[in-house]
Design a protein around this nucleic acid. Structure first.
Lengths: 211, 211
DNA sequence: TAACCTACCAAACACTTGTTAGGGAAGAAG
DNA sequence: CTTCTTCCCTAACAAGTGTTTGGTAGGTTA
């Protein structure tokens, strides 16, 4: 077994380690862009290296493998996502406010981690089967629990319709939110909050004119 | 240039050619399943051959290349899809009925071509860039036109809300419908028509209870 | 100055990929 | 029976894959 290649902290202080960490993040960001655009399997380490202005082998100074890059990209995305979600859930808002907050938070995450979300959407299916990416299944379960319970609370409280299949509704809502990562571009004409507002208006009140 | 490998019609009649065509369709169906499950790039011709009970090289008796298999899968799907769509559009229903018919037809197509739809969803982005798959871009354009004009007609007629961004609404509706291919399984507890009904109910009237 | 560390390059490795060429078994056609 | 056609197998090819090894310019430390 080779020893860890992680840069050590120099005896004189932390700046060296911080710079190394920043470089890692920089490389992961470019890797995420290429993964999102071309797909994980279709992306070669040589392409990543090209985009980063270096040679393929040099990436292995910073990372153990192509797969570990993917893992780190998804892990750091999910970490931040759950930071936002947990804050919403712990606020114990009423069902409708919770739904609105979750949707808004989701679009904010898409804004911040567009590439990671796109990768997650595309590769999730095949990755969860691998032991290494078991954390994806975990996250998926917590995710489902959070959304389903919110919808069910709403139905019980009489603020959401009771004649709709909750599970079906959950799937539609979930998909519509996350699939936005495939067309959303930061800096476009709609802010994440504006997209969330319009989306919520459609899902909550429908697109038909009331008579 | 190699000559076409397509089985010729024997002198005695058409049954031989029909059988060959049936075999092609059979192989394309298994290929589509594997493509949908593992992704096109991650699928090797050896895996396809495995699922078909033959060796990799043998596939090349029936098809020119891996890519031509993908093309034929997508082409035959889109052909049937547009058969259904055109019938709806030519019926010249009012906006709301058109929307309902398009959605229902879409879920029926997902029921019939689940694998092809999943492949389309995943690979469309990367494929349209290739000249060979230019027909995907064409289809995409017609698709957008059909949906957008329906929504706009509805807004003009006063049956759809005018305060929503039509383009944004189109994207939400489009994505939610097609992404269903990733979780839909034929023979489940919901028929395509039932899924369409619930989906339309949500999109048209919203999930919030009216006061 | 000497020793060391960081971040990269150059070149190769074993392996997998899509694809091809030649052959052969089994049935149909004559 | 002979000949042809259909459909698959065996075996290999060249290109591309992720990864490893050894080296080295340039800055930092002592």
């Amino acid at each position: 077994m080779p020893t860890k290649k992680k840069p050590q902290v120099t005896a004189s202080g932390k700046p060296a380690a911080a710079a190394a960490q920043a470089r890692r993040r920089e490389l992961l960001d470019t890797a995420a862009e290429v993964f999102a655009e071309q797909g994980y399997n279709a992306t070669t380490v040589r392409k990543i290296a090209d985009h980063a202005g270096m040679l393929a082998g040099s990436l292995y100074y910073h990372f153990d493998s192509k797969e570990s890059m993917l893992e780190e990209i998804l892990r750091s995305f999910l970490d931040e996502l759950w930071g936002g979600y947990d804050a919403v859930l712990e606020a114990e808002l009423d069902p409708r406010e919770t739904l609105e907050a979750l949707v808004t938070e989701s679009f904010r995450e898409i804004d911040r981690h567009r590439a990671a979300v796109a990768i997650y959407q595309k590769e999730n299916r095949q990755l969860v089967a691998q032991e290494r990416f078991a954390f994806l299944a975990e996250s998926q379960l917590r995710f489902e629990k959070a959304w389903l319970s919110t919808l069910e609370r709403g139905v019980a409280a009489g603020v959401f319709r009771s004649d709709l299949d909750v599970r079906l509704t959950y799937r539609f809502v979930r998909d519509t939110v996350w699939v936005a990562a495939s067309w959303y571009r930061p800096g476009g004409q709609h802010s994440p909050e504006e997209i969330a507002r319009q989306y919520l208006s459609m899902v909550l009140d429908g697109i038909a004119v009331r008579e």
